[in-house]
Design a protein around this nucleic acid. Structure first.
Lengths: 185, 185
DNA sequence: CGTTTTACAATGCAGTCGCATCGTAAACGC
DNA sequence: GCGTTTACGATGCGACTGCATTGTAAAACG
C-alpha cells in the first residue's frame, strides 16, 4: 500500500467542495471537474473515492444533513427552560448566521432534487422524521404534540425557503416563530 | 410573412413541456433537445421562440406561477364564509389533487434555483408578496393580520415540500392547516 | 409578379459531461 | 529485494450541451 490516508477525511473534503458549489451556484453547477477544482484535487482523486457522481452527491447530502443536525443540537443544549430550548431549536433551523446562510441553499437544492430522486428523498425523510420526533418531545405531553410538531416543522421549513429567496427578512421570521411559540406554550 | 401563428400559444406549449420535464425529472433534465422532443416540435422551433435557455426557463416559470395563482383564485371564489374561503385558499396551495401534484415539484425546483439565481428570485418574491397580501386580507382586520399571513404562508410552503418528499401524507397536512386555522379565527 | 419578411428545419461547432482506461510512484508483506 | 496492493494523475472517449449558421417554404406587401 502507498502512503497511509484518512479515507473519511478525503471524502469529506470533497463533499465540502460539493456543498460549497451547490450552495453558491446550485446543484447544476456540480460536475466532477468543478468539484475537483473547488476541492483543490485532481479529478482522478474524486473518481477514486466515489465510483459515480450520484454516489458523491449522496455522500455530500449525508455530510450536510449531519452538520445541520449537529448545529441544531448544539444550539439546544445551552438553554434551560423548555420554552427557550424549543425556541433555540427552531431558530437554529433558520439561516440566521453565516453557517445557516451557507447551509440553507444547499439543503434547499437537495430538497428539490428529493422531489424527483428517490435515493435523496429516503434519507431526507429519515432525518426529517427524527427532527419531528425531537420537536414533539420538546413541545410537551399534550395530546396534540405530534400535530404541533408537524406545524412547527413546516413553519420553519417555509420560513427557511422564504428567507433564502429574500421574501422575508430575519426579523420577520423570528417574530413569526415567537408568535407561534406563544400559542403552543 | 408565412402562415399566421399564435405566438403566445407556441411559447406556452413549449413552456408546458419545460414544466412537465422539470416536474418529473428535475430542472437538470431540461435541455433544449429534451424540451423540443417533449413538446413534439423541432429544436429549431424552440430556438426561434426563445433566444436563450434562460429566457425559456424564465417564461416557463412565469407560466406555472400564473397557473398556480389562478388555480388558487378559482378555489376561493366558490366559498362563502371567511373561514371556508381561507381554508380553501390554503388547501389549494397544497399538492392534494392531480393538478397540484404536477405543479408542486416544478415550483420546488424553481424555488431552489431562486436561491442561487436572482432573475428567478425576483418574480418569485413578487408573486409571493401578492399571495401574502391576499392572505392578510382574508385573515381579517386584527393588528396581527400581517404576521398571521406570514405564518400561514410559511406553514403551507413547508407542508408543500414535506408532502412532495413524502415526509407527511395529505391527511396530516390538512389536519395541520385546520388546527392552525382554529387558532387564527 | 417580385420582393421581403416570417417561421421554421437542419446541420455544425466548440465546449463540457460522466466515466473508463492506463500508467506509475509509494508503501507494505514476504 | 520483490511482488502485490493502494492511491492516485493523466488521458481519452462517446455522448451531450447551448448556441450559431444556413437553407427554405410560404405568406404578406409593393
Amino acid at each position: 500500500m502507498p502512503k497511509q490516508v484518512d479515507h473519511e477525511a478525503r471524502k469529506r473534503r470533497i463533499a465540502d467542495a460539493v456543498c460549497r458549489l451547490a450552495g453558491t451556484r446550485g446543484l447544476e453547477a456540480v460536475s466532477l471537474r468543478h468539484v475537483a477544482t473547488e476541492a483543490g484535487v485532481s479529478m482522478g482523486q474524486v473518481q477514486h473515492y466515489f465510483a459515480t457522481k450520484d454516489e458523491m452527491l449522496l455522500f455530500a447530502f449525508a455530510v450536510i444533513s449531519e452538520r445541520y443536525e449537529q448545529r441544531i443540537a448544539a444550539a439546544v443544549t445551552s438553554k434551560r427552560t423548555p420554552r427557550t430550548r424549543l425556541r433555540a431549536l427552531l431558530l437554529a433551523m433558520l439561516p440566521l448566521d453565516d453557517a445557516g446562510l451557507a447551509e440553507g441553499p444547499v439543503l434547499l437544492a437537495f430538497l428539490a432534487r428529493a422531489a424527483v430522486a428517490a435515493e435523496i428523498a429516503a434519507p431526507l425523510r429519515e432525518s426529517g422524521a427524527g427532527m419531528r420526533a425531537f420537536l414533539a418531545e420538546m413541545v410537551g405531553s399534550t395530546p396534540d404534540a405530534e400535530r404541533e410538531a408537524v406545524i412547527l416543522q413546516a413553519l420553519v421549513d417555509g420560513l427557511l425557503s422564504q428567507l433564502l429567496v429574500g421574501h422575508i427578512d430575519a426579523r420577520t421570521a423570528i417574530a413569526a416563530v415567537d408568535h407561534q411559540l406563544d400559542r403552543v406554550c
